[in-house]
Computed example of a mutant assay.
Amino acid sequence: MADNEGLTEAERAELEQLRAEKAAREAAKAQAAERAELEALRAEKADAAKATAAKQRAQAQAAQDAADLERARKLMEPDEDDLKMPVGQKVVILGVVVVAAVFLLLAIFR
């Protein structure tokens, strides 16, 4: 550092004041940097939480889709005994028979 022997009292006081102002500016700058880092870390944490929640929702949706697919497969595939029809096929045939019966009755009673 510079030798303070050649400074007057007023110059020393001014130097100390300027040093104090510089220290205050540096402290404010450090605090602003810490605040910015804190906000960045909070945003990063929020993004990670959103990504985790989205991943969990996607996994839940995939599990639901798999369950729906399995239920539909069981409905349309034949049972263990090959002579039995699957329930879905029985429902379709019953619907066709009912519609045909309605048309037959309408044709007869007109």
Rank of each mutant, 00 (worst) to 15 (best):
Ala72Cys: 13
Ala33Gly: 04
Leu106Ala: 11
Leu38Val: 06
Gln89Cys: 03
Gln64Phe: 09
Lys90Arg: 12
Ala13His: 12
Ala67Cys: 08
Leu83Ser: 15
Val99Pro: 01
Val98Asn: 04
Glu26Gln: 00
Glu14Trp: 00
Asp68Val: 07
Val87Gly: 02
Ala10Val: 09
Lys50Tyr: 08
Leu83Thr: 13
Ala40Asp: 07
Asp79Pro: 10
Arg57Ala: 09
Ala13Trp: 11
Glu39Asn: 06
Glu16Gln: 10
Ala27Met: 04
Thr52Asp: 10
Lys74Ser: 12
Ala13Gly: 08
Leu105Glu: 11
Ala33Trp: 04
Gly95Cys: 10
Ala30Val: 00
Ala36Glu: 02
Leu15Asn: 06
Ile108Ser: 04
Ala30Pro: 00
Glu80Met: 12
Lys90Thr: 01
Glu14Asp: 13
Arg12Asn: 01
Ala58Gln: 14
Asp82Phe: 14
Gln31Val: 01
Leu41Ala: 02
Lys22Tyr: 01
Pro86Ala: 05
Thr8Phe: 05
Gln59Gly: 09
Val92Asp: 03
Ala24Val: 03
Asp81Leu: 05
Ala49Cys: 09
Lys74Tyr: 10
Arg12His: 08
Asp81Val: 07
Leu18Met: 08
Lys22Met: 06
Glu11Gly: 01
Ile108Tyr: 05
Leu106Ile: 13
Glu77Ala: 07
Leu69Gly: 13
Ala2Pro: 12
Ala2Tyr: 14
Glu5Leu: 15
Asp47Met: 12
Asp47Thr: 10
Ala2Cys: 09
Asp65Leu: 06
Asp47Lys: 13
Ala32Asp: 01
Ala101Gln: 14
Glu11Asp: 04
Ala53Val: 07
Pro78His: 06
Arg12Trp: 10
Glu14Gly: 07
Ala62Asn: 08
Ala60Gly: 07
Gln64Glu: 12
Asp47Glu: 11
Ala54Asn: 12
Ala28Gly: 02
Ala60Gln: 01
Ala28Glu: 00
Arg35Met: 11
Ala48Thr: 07
Met76Asp: 13
Gln61Met: 06
Ile108Gly: 09
Leu69Val: 12
Asp65Ser: 15
Val99Arg: 14
Arg35Lys: 11
Glu26Gly: 04
Val97Leu: 10
Gln59Asn: 13
Ala23Ser: 01
Met85Cys: 08
Pro78Phe: 05
Glu34Trp: 06
Asp68Arg: 08
Ala101Pro: 04
Ala24Trp: 02
Glu9Arg: 15
Lys50Asn: 15
